[in-house]
Simulated scan of single mutants.
Amino acid sequence: MSASTSTRRRGAELEHALYEATVRELAESGYGRLTMEGVAARARTGKAAVYRRWSTKQALVLDALRHSLPPLPGFEPEMPPRDNLRAVFTVLCQIFGGRTSFPGLAVITGLVADPVLRNAIVEHIVSPRLRVIESILDNAVRTGEIDAVRPMAVHIGPALVMHSFLLTGNPPDEAEIDQIVDTVLGA
């Protein structure tokens, strides 16, 4: 067995390297200039290793994005809705701000021009987070902590977090997150 064979990455280790390479390529080059060959070179593997796993760059990018997301904050029924929402919005700030392995809002805005990726991002990244917010608000109504869920309440928090990034380039601070939570809860 040669030295190169004994150090060859396989399975999960190789996939992890390919995910990391994809996210770095997205951050540095953008989606339009990302290539399967570039990802393979960055991961120090052959392009056949990439094409065996993903037939399109869309599929590769979507899997890399899902892999790079921090765990979805869960809805904790015993916690007050304010604390649950604060946890969700704090993680959202970290994601958008590129403070996780996820590439951040600047990269995501470059992906939504591709309809397939936009739909996949909504289905796999946005919608699960909105469902957590909806569960928090529905539980708050059941427990009497709020009277009703206002129309668009589920979307307000993420929209305000994104709005802060777009206007200032920075995530909301803790006081602003508290104001966003109050807005969502109708306080």
Rank of each mutant, 00 (worst) to 15 (best):
A113M: 12
T100A: 10
M152Y: 11
D114S: 13
F102A: 13
G144F: 09
I146F: 01
I133P: 04
V154Q: 04
V91F: 07
P151Q: 02
H155C: 05
C93H: 01
V126W: 10
S101N: 12
V126M: 03
C93Q: 07
A140Y: 07
M152Q: 12
R142S: 14
T143Y: 11
V141W: 08
M152L: 14
G98K: 03
R129H: 14
V91M: 14
E134S: 13
A153W: 00
D138V: 15
F102I: 09
R142H: 04
I95L: 06
E145L: 15
S135V: 12
R118N: 14
D114M: 08
F96C: 05
N119H: 13
N119L: 14
A153L: 01
P128A: 06
P103S: 02
E123H: 14
R131K: 06
R129E: 08
L92F: 03
A153E: 04
H124E: 12
Q94D: 15
I146V: 07
P151N: 08
I125P: 04
F102D: 02
T100R: 06
T100V: 02
L130T: 05
I125W: 07
E134P: 01
L92C: 05
M152H: 13
N139P: 07
R129F: 03
V149R: 12
F102K: 08
L137M: 09
S135M: 14
T143H: 01
V116E: 05
I121W: 04
I146W: 03
I108A: 15
P103H: 01
D147C: 03
M152K: 08
N139D: 15
S101C: 08
V107Y: 00
D138K: 15
L130D: 07
L111H: 10
H124W: 06
L117S: 03
R99Q: 07
L160Q: 02
